[in-house]
Amino acid sequence: MKDKRPVLSKKLDNFFRGLADAFAFVKRFFQEVWFPPYEFKEILRQCYEIGYRSLPLISLTGFIIGIVFTNQSRPSLAEFGATSWLPALISIAVVRALGPLVTALIAAGKVGSSIGAELGSMKVTEQIDAMEVSAINPFKYLVITRTLATTFMIPVLVMYTDFVALMGSFINVNQNELVSLSTFFVQVFESISFLDIFSSVIKSLVFGFTIGIVGCYKGYNSTKGTEGVGQAANSSVVMSMFLIFIEELLALQIVNAIRYA
């Protein structure tokens, strides 16, 4: 018979077991993603669900961020007679930090919770088991497709959010400082560098991967029936947001080290 005594304590054993499971899940993703079948149709369907269906929320949020941030920054710059720097300030803030972070947080809430709940529901209703006993790899069909879709779509959504936020900012600047669209964007592009855009895209890829893999992990390992589905959706959002902030902090250190090297 199996020895059931805990190695450290029951709680610590469960914590380390959970950590090992999570690493094994990520490892399995990287082991299986390269090999067929590639499930292109399902990846495209997920890209549509994650990307296209998030557009209204992302558009509204991006636009409001652009307007609000411009409005809030104006008084500080006006004290130094520097309101002409608004486009530069906003573009740096949006492209370097606000765009990726806000998009990722919104996606974690909308997409991460939906992936967690969908897979959690499939798990408790034995749909995942049904795939497995039909000799279909559910990890490939469910996890890899969704994680790839979030990884590809979040950078696209981030670029779109950047653009919409800058348009919101432009409307505000245009109304108050009478700056034309071309002048605004000339200043925007003069103030951001290749490193800003490149780091933003790489960061967004990492955020997208995090949202997808966390949602899938929580849903795929959901237990306790319908209560577990709710828990999977909730913990997907909490864990994704927590990891996104940590990743943002790490990315900032790395990009600054490159910028000032």
Partner: peptide
């Protein structure tokens, strides 16, 4: 194992249809 699974049919308690 997957080859063997193809020779086994499993009808689940809650049907497990892909919704």
């Amino acid at each position: 194992l997957n080859q063997l699974r193809l020779k086994i049919g499993f009808a689940f308690q809650a049907s497990a249809l892909y919704d």
